[in-house]
């Protein structure tokens, strides 16, 4: 280029720099909100514990101190479950919307939640599994089986994927009902899992499952730039040198890891995976290199935040995170839908 380039203002570069600053601010603010939510999750509940005591419980626990025991045995695992499941759900939703280019897609739409639910129902009713750690593997296997089925039949085509996902859900849902109707005891156990809750999962569950989330997060991060190209259409992505089949395949692996873990940890929670990517696009635009990291933070903000709110709304009792998340997620989606433009994928 001639001297004109060097002298003239560089609108593209200036634009990129300006947007980068704005996006960094958004991510930083979201991280700050998450920090507040984490502290609240450790401190608030049926028994309110002040922050100093929480800190003490974490650093210098005193044996026999009830507050310390509550923090260490209940609130810490619960918070970690919220963080892991929230991150997993947020990113899984982003990946599913990205590869299907479908703004209403989430792991639930692809039939992954129903796959997990069926596996849990079978485990409870027919195999007599009753511990949360026992559910985990069945939920995981169910998610993976449904994902493999849907992705192989849907052969990576956005509309086919959604159709096959809906078909799988429609097939599985009555099967679940059928089993549960005949087995009230299993129904009793299942419904507490199915409502979506962060409680009752001990440290051992999170210890076993966090590596799956970690691998899924790393994979999603590596796929982010490819998803930005895929958003322009399969043909454009191919023309730009991307093997779209590879992108879809790796994204499917990441979705199985993330959605499988989230469902195993917290039950089939619907609206987080759907609402979080939309909110993220609203905040940072269409570049998946920003959307993916932001959803990793916004997911736990929403899920753990819902859990904390659920502890506060009822006196001496709690609402499950899944219920509150749905109540929060719906208005978020309505706000997105009522906006100037729906940020498509």
């Amino acid at each position: 280029m001639s001297a004109t380039t060097d002298v003239a203002p560089r609108p593209a570069a200036a634009l990129v720099a300006r947007r980068t600053r704005g996006r960094l601010l958004v991510v930083a603010a979201t991280v700050a909100v998450l920090a507040v939510v984490v502290v609240a999750s450790l401190a608030l509940g049926v028994r309110d514990i002040d922050v100093a005591t929480v800190w003490q419980a974490l650093t210098h626990p005193v044996a026999g101190n009830v507050d310390h025991d509550v923090v260490r045995d209940q609130r810490v695992p619960r918070t970690l479950v919220g963080l892991a499941a929230g991150t997993a759900l947020g990113i899984a939703g982003t990946l599913v919307q990205g590869v299907t280019r479908n703004p209403i897609a989430d792991p639930g739409l692809l039939g992954l939640n129903s796959g997990a639910s069926l596996a849990v129902v079978v485990a409870v009713s027919m195999l007599g599994v009753s511990s949360p750690l026992g559910f985990v593997w069945f939920a995981f296997a169910g998610t993976a089986a449904a994902a493999l089925l849907v992705f192989s039949i849907g052969s990576g085509q956005p509309v086919k994927l959604a159709l096959v996902g809906a078909t799988v859900t429609a097939l599985i849902t009555p099967l679940i009902t059928l089993v549960l109707l005949r087995d009230p005891e299993a129904f009793n156990m299942y419904r507490f899992w199915a409502v979506g809750s962060l409680t009752g999962r001990g440290m051992e569950t999170i210890t076993v499952l966090w590596p799956f989330v970690a691998v899924g997060v790393v994979l999603a991060g590596a796929l982010a730039h490819r998803l930005s190209m895929l958003a322009l259409g399969d043909d454009v992505a191919s023309a730009l040198g991307q093997r779209v089949g590879v992108t879809r395949g790796l994204a499917a692996v990441a979705v199985i890891l993330l959605a499988g873990t989230a469902t195993a940890l917290a039950g089939p929670i619907a609206l987080v995976g759907l609402a979080v990517p939309h909110a993220a696009r609203r905040l940072v635009g269409t570049d998946y290199r920003w959307i993916v990291p932001l959803t990793a933070v916004l997911g736990p903000v929403m899920l753990l935040g819902a859990d904390v709110i659920g502890r506060l709304v009822l006196p001496h009792s709690e609402l499950e995170a899944g219920v509150v998340a749905a109540a929060i997620g719906a208005p978020v989606l309505v706000a997105v839908a009522r906006g100037k433009t729906v940020a498509g994928v």
Binding site: L15, G233, V236, G285
Partner: peptide, 14 residues
């Protein structure tokens, strides 16, 4: 290609 999709909200330079 004919089937190009501009994601909503994407800016020209991006």
């Amino acid at each position: 290609p004919q089937s190009s999709i501009a994601p909503d909200g994407v800016r020209v330079a991006e």
